[in-house]
Computed example of a mutant assay.
Amino acid sequence: MSQTTANAPATMQAVVCHGPEDYRHESRPRPSAGPGEVVLKIGACGICASDVKCRGGAAMFWGNDSQPSWVQAPVVAGHEFFGEVVELGEGAGRRAGLAVGDRAIAEQIVPCGECRYCDSGHYWMCEVHNIFGFQREVADGGMAEYMRVPANARLHRIPEALSRADAAFIEPLACGIHAVNRGDIQLDDTVVIAGAGPIGLAMVQVARLKTPKRLIVIDMLDERLRLAERFGADVTLNPGRDDVGARVRELTDGYGCDVYIEATGSPTGVRQGLDIIRKLGRFVEFSVFGKETSVDWSIIGDRKELDVRGAHLSPRTFPVAIDLLARKRVTTDGIVTHELPLAEFEEGFRMATAAESIKVLLIP
C-alpha cells in the first residue's frame, strides 16, 4: 500500500522543455508513486548553467552531425531541487529511510544499475546516463510543483534545520566537493579555482577546508571576487585587469600553481590553466562547455606531463554536502541571490546569466 498526504491535487504547474528556446509554463497531471517510488512536493529548484545552455540549443544537449540529441523533449526541466515527501510507493519508505512529511533530495543521475559502471560502483558514470530534467523516459525534473522520484534513484534525507536556500544548494555544492576532491589538495599546494559562479564559490569554501598553502580565485566580476575573499581566497585576480600568468608565477617562485580547477565554462579558462599550472600539476576540468575548445596538447604531455582529471556530477558527496551545510562550514549567504515564482521562469533564466545575480531559485 502506498502512503500519501490527503487531498492531493490532480494537476500541477511545471516548466516544460519542448526544444531549444522553447520552454513553457504548463499545467500537467500530478505524478503518483509506483512501487519503490517517492513523490516530492518541490520546495525550490535552482537554475543551473547547464539548464541555460540546454535552453540555448548547445550541441552537447541537442546533438549535431556527429551525435544524436541527448535531451528527450518534452520534459520537465530542472535537477537542482529538493522537496517534501508527500507520497511513498510500496516499499519506498524502507528503501530510502523516509516517511511522509520528511524533506528529501535525489541525486541528479538515475543510474540503471546494470551497466559495467553501475556494477563496479561507479554509478555516476552510468552508461545509460539518465539525469533529471533532461530525459523524460525515467522521470521529469524539479521545475514543477510535484515530482516523481523513481525506485532506482539515490535519495537523501534533509535535516529540518536547513534553510530553503541551503537545501536547494545541496546539488551544486555536492558537485563542487567532488571537483575539489579530484584535485587531491595537499597542505603545501597553491590552488587556483577559475570561475566564481555558484559552484565555483562552493569550491572556494570546500578548498579552504582542505587548508592549502595558498588559494587563488579568478573571475571577471569583482563582486564575485569579493565574495570569494569572504569565503577564504587568499588572492583574487580579474583577467580583465590583472596579468594572471605573471601574478601566479610571482606567487609561486616562477613555477605555477600545483592544482588548477577549471569552472569557467569558457575555452579561455582552459588555455589559461594550461599556461599557469606547473609541470606535473593536477588540472581538474569541471565545466560544461557550450562550444568546442582547442588547446595545444603538447603542453599536457611533452612540456608539462600534467595529470588531467575530469570531475563529473557528485558521487557519494550528497551526504557530505548536507553535513557541511548543517554544521555551517559552508554557507549560501551571498550565493543564492534571487528567488522567483515558477511562472516567472523566463525572467529567472535571464537573471541566471546576468552579472547582478549568482544562483537563481524557482519557487513553485
Results as ranks from 00 to 15, higher is better:
202 A>V: 13
31 P>W: 15
25 H>C: 10
275 D>R: 15
41 K>G: 11
310 G>E: 10
291 K>P: 00
76 V>M: 07
1 M>K: 09
231 F>S: 08
317 T>P: 01
363 I>P: 02
347 E>S: 10
325 L>Y: 00
33 A>P: 11
125 M>S: 10
46 G>Q: 08
250 E>S: 08
22 D>C: 04
119 D>A: 03
142 G>E: 11
53 K>V: 11
188 D>Q: 04
337 T>C: 00
267 P>K: 12
124 W>M: 15
230 R>W: 03
145 E>M: 06
255 Y>F: 14
42 I>C: 05
36 G>T: 12
348 G>H: 02
336 V>A: 00
114 E>F: 05
218 I>F: 00
252 T>N: 11
334 G>S: 07
305 E>Q: 07
190 T>L: 00
100 V>K: 11
94 R>P: 07
58 A>H: 12
323 D>Y: 14
17 C>W: 09
57 G>D: 12
207 A>K: 01
13 Q>P: 00
267 P>A: 06
341 P>Y: 09
149 V>T: 08
317 T>E: 05
129 H>D: 13
259 V>Q: 10
186 Q>Y: 07
92 A>E: 03
51 D>K: 12
117 Y>C: 12
341 P>E: 03
333 D>F: 01
132 F>Y: 15
47 I>H: 08
331 T>G: 01
102 D>N: 10
351 M>W: 04
149 V>S: 06
209 L>E: 04
3 Q>P: 12
98 L>M: 09
294 S>W: 13
341 P>T: 04
287 S>E: 07
293 T>H: 01
37 E>H: 11
312 H>S: 13
32 S>C: 01
123 Y>P: 12
130 N>K: 13
10 A>Y: 11
103 R>S: 08
260 Y>I: 07
28 R>C: 03
163 S>E: 14
178 H>W: 09
357 S>L: 01
209 L>F: 03
128 V>G: 07
171 E>F: 02
268 T>L: 01
206 V>D: 02
128 V>C: 07
279 K>I: 13
113 G>P: 00
231 F>N: 09
44 A>H: 14
31 P>M: 15
177 I>P: 14
153 A>Q: 10
174 A>I: 02
40 L>K: 09
160 E>D: 07
100 V>Y: 14
313 L>V: 06
308 V>M: 14
276 I>G: 02
102 D>T: 09
236 T>G: 05
